[in-house]
Design a protein around this nucleic acid. Structure first.
Length: 109
DNA sequence: GCTTTGACTCTCG
DNA sequence: TCGAGAGCCAAAG
């Protein structure tokens, strides 16, 4: 069933823990994983983003809720613009690819 | 099995 | 304030 490494699955699991209207950072994810593989976390998304951010079934992983350490939107498979739109739909204020109330929407584990 | 890459982060200029 | 460079970890080639 698991075709993807544990590290990736762990990242997805944490992402799924982020409630709607909240966002998290790659750093927080890596820290939660017990590693500093900020890049590995992002890489995991990009590699599997194909069918993940579909948000259709239970496989929904809010990758768009994962932002940079400073609350600024970073890389997105579909484009940062799309990411900003998605976040805005969640109730998060995004301005110029940047989280407006980052401190308020930042979800802490 | 080593090298390259990547949706990152931090520090210096 | 913005730009460039170095560091870090894990997976894929």
């Amino acid at each position: 069933m698991s075709k993807i490494p544990q590290f990736y699955q762990k990242v997805y699991h944490i992402c799924r823990k982020v409630p709607k209207g909240k966002v998290t950072t790659y750093k927080a994810l890596a820290e939660k994983l017990g590693s500093k593989a900020y890049r590995a976390v992002g890489r995991a998304m990009n590699k599997n983003s194909n069918g993940i951010l579909n948000c259709k079934g239970r496989n929904m992983v809010p990758c768009h809720r994962v932002v940079g350490s400073s609350g600024h939107l970073v890389g997105f498979a579909h484009g940062l613009k799309k990411k900003a739109e998605l976040l805005r739909k969640e109730g998060i204020k995004v301005k110029n690819n940047k989280i407006k109330d980052f401190d308020k929407v930042l979800f802490r584990f």
